[in-house]
Design a protein around this nucleic acid. Structure first.
Lengths: 205, 205
DNA sequence: GTCTATAAACCGATAGAC
DNA sequence: GTCTATCGGTTTATAGAC
């Protein structure tokens, strides 16, 4: 029951964090939900912060591809990012606070951000080579748009609930394609509209 | 020393929250920094949450105009939003968490978001009427871009430190204009380039 | 290795003396 | 208005049984 307990703790902690947020969940809550003692919990994870670090390390599974070459690749990346944000909302809901929690968490966040930023930036360049994206109209235009896409996806989870509350909901993927529209060449538009999964994306105004 | 103390508490709390974040600052820390007792502090603000609410109410000063008609107006709005976010970073650093803190805080956030969203959306329509923005290329394109601008500004403060840490820093205003570029008509580009404060905005690639 | 039980330190919040 | 004293709850840390 040993390896099992450690895993059960991680699973339960993730569930509770997703439901109520990192701060609102005490070690007692987690122990109670598992019907184990608080001390048992701190045997496996000496501090709450350590538990969070283990949780992040566990979810460090790289689901993203390591390069983007087609519009489908890009769309798949948006879908994946949105899915990850949805599943680990506890992480993104307290993103800024968690970085203050420990140096190791802050490093993980930086590495993830760096990775996503490079993936998109290189992908934009690939799509430009494939003549699906127009050239940069000004210095660092791709950087600009990629940065905005990054900050948006990182904080999409809390923002989504804000949007829902005022009845303006649409998913991240639609928003991402919305601000990419201006980058597409004619060839890009053509290719996009010929793909089944994009037919709902841009509807006539 | 009574009215004075209340104000001093607010000022000190804001400073400490800006530095270390809401959770990392205890009532004891605030009392110590002011050389008053913890009990005195809770006399003025019965709960930590109440202190935060007072802090937000104090900064509810509406610095934004109530309509945007020119590109200068829009730029001024970006500058103002960026300034506000910088001054009250404690608020945006823990944006999602604060909404869980109390209903009243959540309401304030919703109202602010609604206001900024409407201001930008109506502004975009005005700029379209003035033939500075092109028409929407697809249904709700303006909504899309406005939403992205909103989520970006709300979370710019924590994101900025992430960016700085990987050496990719540029301010919000540049990013905002970066994703608006594709919306400008020829007339829009012309008017923009003729204005002194925009000359640095779009540099040849 | 695994778990239980318990103590120490700290936090937010309350009550009452001055 | 200001302070001291104190309660309940949470986190951290330790000692010891199985």
């Amino acid at each position: 029951m040993s390896k099992d307990t450690k895993q059960k703790i991680l699973d339960t902690a993730r569930e509770l964090f997703n439901e109520r947020g990192y701060n609102a969940v005490s070690l007692q809550d987690i122990a109670d939900a598992l019907n184990i003692s608080k001390g048992n919990l701190t045997y496996h994870f000496r501090k709450k912060e350590e538990l969070m670090e283990a949780l992040l390390r566990e979810n460090q599974t790289e689901e993203l591809p390591n390069s983007l070459h087609t519009l489908e690749d890009l769309d798949e990346a948006f879908r994946t990012m949105e899915k990850v944000v949805g599943q680990h909302s506890y992480y993104f809901l307290n993103y800024a606070q968690l970085s203050q929690l420990s140096e190791s968490i802050s490093e993980m966040q930086k590495n993830n951000y760096r990775m996503i930023r490079e993936l998109l930036l290189q992908g934009f360049r690939n799509l430009h080579t494939a003549e699906l994206f127009r050239s940069e109209a000004f210095s660092r235009e791709y950087d600009c748009i990629v940065d905005i896409l990054c900050v948006s996806i990182l904080y999409w989870s809390p923002f989504e609930s804000l949007q829902r509350s005022i009845g303006a909901y649409k998913d991240y993927r639609h928003h991402a394609w919305g601000i990419i529209y201006g980058l597409l060449t004619e060839k890009g538009h053509l290719e996009l509209s010929s793909l089944a999964q994009f037919q709902q994306l841009y509807q006539a105004p």
